[in-house]
């Protein structure tokens, strides 16, 4: 049975990854699970300069969901190389660096910098963070900007380039086609949904930045629908994200047309979720006599 998934020139050992921002740089979970058994580790976003992150509080739980406004808090590309890269380089799993920036040049320069100082398996372009004033959504909601940044990043690396889409647009498939036209190897779909929670007693929003990004089981049906729609709009593979908390949710995405998935918020709830999900997919493939994980999508009636 073959669980591997190939994106560009990189082959992930299995289709279950951990989503950027929910797993740090891997070492944070070392005491709890075998990190190397994960299919792909998508790092916390890396930016050119260090970012302290947004005002506090940064997270609030909503019904079956998590609303966050972290603000891409990270140590910046230089300290990423000295502090995070040494352990990431030793990983047996695929390691994809999530890259974010304010403007197009930031993405290109960070990828160039990492190509030279910290080459790993590939890059995920975060053009969909809802919690920063510049970059993020401002790029990810505009097909021309997405195509342009993808083209420029494509020109500086041979490694897989994955573009992470936002659901906060009328037609994410249009953005996906723009990424494909720019030369992306894959789409990851989706980043968090813009949401707001208001403290009725104190008459103010819970998050100081007013809105945050919603994740967790609450958003899963939206993610599955997008995986279904967007995977049919492009030729390149789609990696499904959104409320995946076990085999059932992951299989929904794989049946919808995703070739792989990322587990996010569920890592906080149950650190063993990735292992359970991989096992569940394997069992499902046995039950359906499938040899390759890519055959799952063909089962959907």
């Amino acid at each position: 049975m073959d669980l591997s998934v190939t994106i560009g020139r990189t082959t992930m050992p299995n289709p279950v990854g951990v989503a950027s921002g929910t797993f740090g740089y891997g070492s944070e979970y070392e005491q709890l699970i075998d990190v190397d058994s994960i299919g792909a580790l998508y790092t916390k976003a890396v930016t050119r300069a260090a970012r302290p992150g947004n005002e506090i509080p940064r997270i609030v739980e909503t019904t079956a969901g998590l609303l966050n406004s972290i603000g891409l808090a990270n140590v910046g590309q230089e300290r990423f190389v000295t502090e995070k890269y040494p352990s990431l380089r030793e990983r047996a799993c695929t390691v994809i660096v999530n890259v974010a920036g304010d403007v197009e040049d930031d993405y290109v320069e960070t990828v160039e910098f990492l190509e030279e100082h910290a080459p790993l398996s590939g890059y995920e372009l975060n053009v969909s963070c809802p919690n920063v004033k510049a970059g993020g959504l401002a790029i990810g909601t505009n097909p021309e900007l997405v195509e342009h940044v993808t083209t420029r990043v494509r020109s500086v690396t041979e490694r897989p380039v994955i573009v992470k889409l936002t659901p906060n647009v009328t037609d994410p498939a249009e953005i996906a086609r723009a990424a494909e036209a720019g030369g992306a190897d894959a789409i990851s779909c989706m980043n968090t949904l813009v949401g707001m929670a208001i403290d009725v007693k104190n008459l103010r929003t819970v998050l100081p930045g007013k809105t945050g990004g919603l994740s967790g089981p609450a958003v899963r049906p939206i993610g599955v629908a997008l995986a279904y729609r967007v995977s049919r709009a492009v030729e390149i593979p789609l990696i499904g994200i959104g409320g995946i908390d076990g085999p059932d949710a992951a299989l929904q995405y794989l049946l919808a047309g995703a070739v792989a998935v990322q587990v996010g918020t569920a890592n906080f709830v149950d650190p063993t979720v990735t292992g359970r999900t991989i096992d569940g997919i394997r069992t499902f493939m046995q039950e359906h006599n499938l040899q390759r994980v890519g055959e799952i999508a063909s089962l959907l009636r």
Partner: peptide, 11 residues
């Protein structure tokens, strides 16, 4: 308020 409680999420 905590997300992961293991140092990963910066929440």
């Amino acid at each position: 308020t905590m997300g992961c409680a293991v140092g990963a999420c910066m929440g």
